[in-house]
Amino acid sequence: MTTYAFAAALFALGIGGMALLPNLLRKLLAMNVMQVAVIVFFVSLAFKDGATVPILGEGGTPQAADFMNPLPHTLMLTAIVVAVSSTGLALGLLVRIRSRFETLNERRLLDRLR
């Protein structure tokens, strides 16, 4: 439960940062915090008491109770890399915004767009 609450706290922090921070770069960092929250949540769902990492050791037929759930790990593995590339794409957009409007501040941007 503590882990779930930690994920919830990170998620609220990330969403809050995206909504409240004025600078677009900080909004992007807050979005990353939110993505990490989702990853923590999924990985903690995979945890099983008394189980080990989902890599088969020597000998014996594997029992489901002995290994953690590999599916959330797989999903988050890809999610991490997708988060990295979406951050890269967002940084590209920020470079263009900064070059065209000379600012990354949300309110000043809105003024210039008017």
Partner: peptide, 18 residues
């Protein structure tokens, strides 16, 4: 947290593990 009988751990994942 850590419940081996949770739905996430009883559907699909036993097949992947075993």
């Amino acid at each position: 947290f850590g419940d081996p009988a949770s739905p996430a751990s009883t559907h699909l994942s036993p097949r992947f593990i075993e």
